[in-house]
């Protein structure tokens, strides 16, 4: 049907392809090392006093967001993905932000008993 039953690739063509994958491998390892370094950084920064507890939370969340962005962009291949997946994720972002906004409303304007 829609799937090729067997892939008997031309060896020369496959060599070229494998070479391309190999270059990616180096990048994955580098991203992994970066994530480990930033984990250490998160821990170190949490023992630095940025003035208020809120400031420390903001700093930690900025580092975490950067790390999460790296995972999503490189490991999850979101840096170059098809349009349909971006569309799904735009909807997801919309709804999850809506969810957090409800929390904000509940906190800002609480039910008083």
């Amino acid at each position: 049907m829609n799937n090729p039953p067997d892939i008997s690739q031309d060896p020369a063509e496959h060599e070229e392809y494998a070479h391309g994958v190999h270059q990616h491998v180096m990048r994955y390892v580098m991203v992994g090392v970066t994530l480990l370094v930033f984990t250490a950084l998160t821990v170190a920064l949490s023992y630095v006093n940025f003035g208020t507890a809120k400031a420390n939370i903001v700093v930690a969340m900025l580092v975490a967001t950067f790390k999460a962005g790296l995972v999503a962009a490189i490991f999850m291949h979101l840096a170059a993905e098809k349009r349909l997946i971006y569309r799904v994720l735009i909807f997801t972002a919309f709804f999850v932000l809506g969810l957090f906004f409800l929390t904000y409303l509940a906190w800002y304007n609480p039910i008083v008993r």
């Binding site: 496959h14 392809y17 494998a18 994958v21 190999h22 990616h24 491998v25 994955y28 390892v29 991203v31 992994g32 994530l35 480990l36 984990t39 250490a40 821990v43 995972v71 490991f75």
Partner: peptide, 28 residues
């Protein structure tokens, strides 16, 4: 904290190895 940080590192390492496993399959 050290144990939590170690567990964080373990998850990151496993994230790298799973993507390397995929790349290895791509390279047959």
């Amino acid at each position: 904290v050290p144990v939590g940080a170690m567990n964080t590192a373990i998850l990151i390492i496993s994230s790298v190895t799973v993507v390397l496993a995929w790349a290895a399959l791509k390279m047959r």
